[in-house]
């Protein structure tokens, strides 16, 4: 239960960090909050030769208003800062509602937004929320800078669009449109444990009360955040009755996800939970959109 030896660097600027990544590439791992990486190293499941610790790169810890009414969140912003931010509560209520579900208080004091999405655990909350918000992720390397849509960023199990010499520097989360309701819920054995299944929803109604747009994103039931496109197609253009929401939730849980079974829950139980939770969050999102 002790990590293997590695070479440790603690740069104080993004430029310095990028130079280290350019030099060490495949051998290097970025140490952000360390709340997933360090346990993985303690188990020796990961044995990086070089760690580039971003905890002294203060320029990456920020929450700033964006011109579109959303927010820009720096990669090294800790969960506790997002959880307690008034800006987040005002502008991104879905994210605000989701933060307390992330692990435990001690973990939220260290864990970071950029670290969570770079780790890309399919059972984690922030990848799913970033996809639900149709966020964009700003990546940098010494070769340049690019923005990647959240949909294209998460490419598989613990796998992202990041190249070995790139790092996430910030995340842009646009606001949800007017007349949009939102909700997040998850089911775990104990509060703070990894959820068996989690679901985020956002529903936009037109002035007549029909669904103009909807988003439904599952976590824990596939190799990445899974989008409930079947449910969205059923809902769009319709007035969302209880029956229609139930049908949409059930169909999405049958067709849009790919749950696995393990010691914690069978694949069938996860599918069942996905349907129950999807119905619950869609119902709450519609209620909030009608308010």
């Amino acid at each position: 239960m002790k990590p293997p030896a590695f070479k440790y660097y603690a740069p104080s600027s993004v430029e310095e960090a990028l130079a280290l990544l350019a030099e060490h590439g495949y051998d290097a791992k970025i140490l952000a909050g360390g709340q997933s990486l360090i346990p993985t190293m303690n188990f020796r499941l990961a044995q990086p030769g070089v760690l580039v610790d971003l905890n002294r790169v203060s320029e990456l810890a920020f929450i700033r208003p964006a011109d579109d009414g959303g927010l820009l969140i720096g990669a090294m912003t800790r969960h506790v800062q997002v959880e307690t931010s008034d800006l987040v509560a005002q502008r991104l209520p879905l994210l605000h509602e989701t933060m307390p579900f992330i692990a435990h208080p001690q973990i939220r004091n260290r864990g970071t937004y950029g670290g969570s999405i770079s780790h890309a655990d399919p059972a984690a909350e922030l990848p799913a929320i970033t996809v639900t918000h149709r966020g964009k992720i700003h990546l940098r390397s010494t070769r340049g800078s690019r923005w990647v849509d959240a949909d294209d960023f998460f490419v598989g199990l613990f796998t992202t669009a990041l190249e070995p010499d790139e790092m996430v520097v910030e995340i842009a989360l646009p606001p949800l449109p007017p007349r949009t309701g939102w909700a997040f819920d998850e089911f775990s054995r104990r509060h703070g444990d990894f959820a068996l299944v989690g679901v985020a929803a956002a529903v936009t109604l037109d002035p007549a009360g029909a669904v103009e747009d909807a988003r439904l994103v599952f976590m824990g039931v596939g190799d990445r955040p899974m989008k409930g496109d079947t449910a969205v197609a059923l809902l769009r253009g319709q007035v969302p009755s209880a029956d229609l929401i139930e049908e949409a939730a059930t169909r999405a849980a049958q067709e849009d996800i790919d749950p696995f079974g393990d010691v914690h829950a069978s694949a069938a139980f996860r599918r069942h939970l996905a349907a129950v939770l999807a119905k619950r969050v869609l119902t709450r999102a519609v209620e909030r959109a009608n308010r």
């Binding site: 440790y8 603690a10 360390g34 709340q35 360090i38 346990p39 303690n42 610790d53 905890n55 506790v80 208080p105 001690q106 973990i107 004091n109 260290r110």
Partner: peptide
């Protein structure tokens, strides 16, 4: 001043 898990940090940090 904030509670953290000391097994999930390196001393050098």
């Amino acid at each position: 001043g904030q509670p953290v898990r000391s097994c999930l940090m390196f001393a050098v940090q």
